[in-house]
Design a protein around this nucleic acid. Structure first.
Length: 422
DNA sequence: TCTGGGGTCCTAGGACCC
DNA sequence: TCTGGGGTCCTAGGACCC
């Protein structure tokens, strides 16, 4: 029988902040999205205050003030680095590992005996805490979905000390009965509502639900979900993640922007970033689309449009992608309209090793490739944005730049921001 | 006034072809 | 008066995940 574990970092972003500022222990803490717009991570204390996932900060002002909640802007460099440390530690203990997200990994424990499993998980929880300072929980089950259920219980029931093993049938029934159907992996807001209207309130109800009805509303994923809850594994461990299908870069502005120069600068910087992501992954894109929208909360005047560009041959050259993005934007730009969000998406990705040469090419590919190599090398050694394109705007305050007013130092990724021990 | 970003997969419907 | 069927490809939209 297969057996999976899910190791999940508790309140990950908040816990990363706490590692470097222990005075935050026991205090309500939230980490905010870009532009310090929404609460995207909350400590248990913040959750207890009723601060919801994704709650807009302006609706929280009173709560944040009254309870002296510590607020942080997202520090992606720090979280990414801490995540790698967790994965390294886990990988040393269990070789079959799938990095599922920045704060979760699935492990294949099929070859471990039942008695070993709980002990192994407890050891993982202790080791990760010792090596990184981060609290994690582990759940075990015969399928990924059940391992997720187990991890959810491990996190919310302190008596389990961070580990929950649902290999045992009797515990499994009780665990499913205690799990809200909306918490099941693959059941989002829409499906939760649909299920609850039909009296399916818990994971146990769902496991016993009518297959045809589930299939009709939730498609093949619905039937897979039923199988997974019944202990039949449908989602294998993905140790070699399949090639990425797309690369996107988009940002919301702190307030609406209608001036064309700022919009072009913002878009150019996203194009630059997208090109960089492609090169880092060793990929090139055949097609790019640009999208632009106004404030989506103003439904009456909402504007959304996209335009696409096909490249003569797949590319990851910043200059070509910037040029394409700006000309595509020209098709959808509307004068006088306050834009709230711009973005680009790169699709039809191919490995750069599969280069297709064009008979009549307008770009000197060899030169442009070595230029990009040089640019990446400089930015890798001298720091991000040491070299960039003038079309993305010269340094200085910009209306389109994302706001991070409460950011902690990059403790682990910048020499000049290392924490000091005194 | 203020409301994130980056992904995946599935399905339905239309265009097109034989 | 009669007006097929099946396959493929593409896109948009909807659902989900973190």
């Amino acid at each position: 029988m297969s057996r999976f574990a899910l190791v999940d970092c508790n309140n990950f972003y908040v816990s990363c902040e706490r590692v470097f500022d222990p005075s935050l222990e026991g205090r309500p803490v939230v980490v905010l999205s870009n532009n310090d717009g929404c609460a995207v991570a909350r400590s248990n204390e913040a959750k207890a205050l009723g601060i919801g996932m994704g709650a807009p900060v302006f609706t929280l002002a009173e709560t944040l003030r009254r309870h002296d909640v510590a607020c942080f802007s997202s520090n992606y460099a720090l979280y990414g680095d801490m995540s790698r440390r967790v994965v390294t530690t886990l990988g040393e203990m269990v070789p079959d590992l799938e990095v599922y997200s920045i704060d979760e990994s699935f492990l294949d424990l099929s070859s471990f005996r039942a008695v070993d499993v709980a002990e192994l998980c407890q050891r993982m929880v202790r080791t990760v805490k010792r090596n990184t300072g981060l609290p994690v929980s582990a759940g075990v089950g015969p399928t990924k979905t059940l391992a997720k259920v187990a991890a959810g219980l491990a996190k919310t029931h302190p008596c389990l000390a961070g580990v929950c093993d649902l290999t045992d049938e009797t515990w499994l029934q009780r665990a499913l009965a205690a799990t809200d159907v909306g918490k099941v992996w693959g059941v989002g807001r829409r499906y939760e509502k649909f299920l609850k209207v039909r009296g399916i309130n818990t994971a146990l109800d769902l496991a016993g639900a009518d297959r045809t009805m589930i299939q009709k509303r939730m498609g093949v994923n619905g039937t897979r979900l039923l199988d997974e809850l019944a202990g039949i594994s449908c989602f294998p461990l993905e140790t070699n993640p399949p090639a990425q299908k797309g690369v996107g870069v988009s940002r919301t502005f702190a307030s609406g922007i209608d001036d064309r120069i700022s919009l072009d600068e913002a878009l150019s910087s996203y194009a630059e970033r997208a090109a960089e992501k492609l090169r880092k992954a060793g990929l090139r894109a055949g097609v790019m689309s640009v999208f632009a929208m106004s404030n989506r909360f103003d439904r009456k005047h909402f504007y959304y449009n996209t335009a696409s560009v096909r490249f003569p041959t797949p590319t990851s050259a910043a200059s070509e992608i910037i040029k394409g993005a700006l000309s595509a934007f020209d098709e959808i730009y509307k004068e006088g309209l306050p834009f709230k969000k711009l973005g680009i998406q790169m699709r039809e990705l191919v490995p750069e090793s599969e280069e297709q040469l064009l008979l009549f090419d307008t770009v000197d590919r060899t030169r442009s490739t070595s230029l990009m190599k040089a640019l990446d090398a400089v930015n890798a050694t001298m720091g991000n944005h040491t070299l960039g394109y003038a079309s993305s705007g010269l340094s200085g305050p910009k209306t389109w730049r994302t706001r991070f007013n409460h950011k902690s130092p990059s403790y682990t990724t910048r020499w000049d921001e290392l924490p000091r021990v005194s």
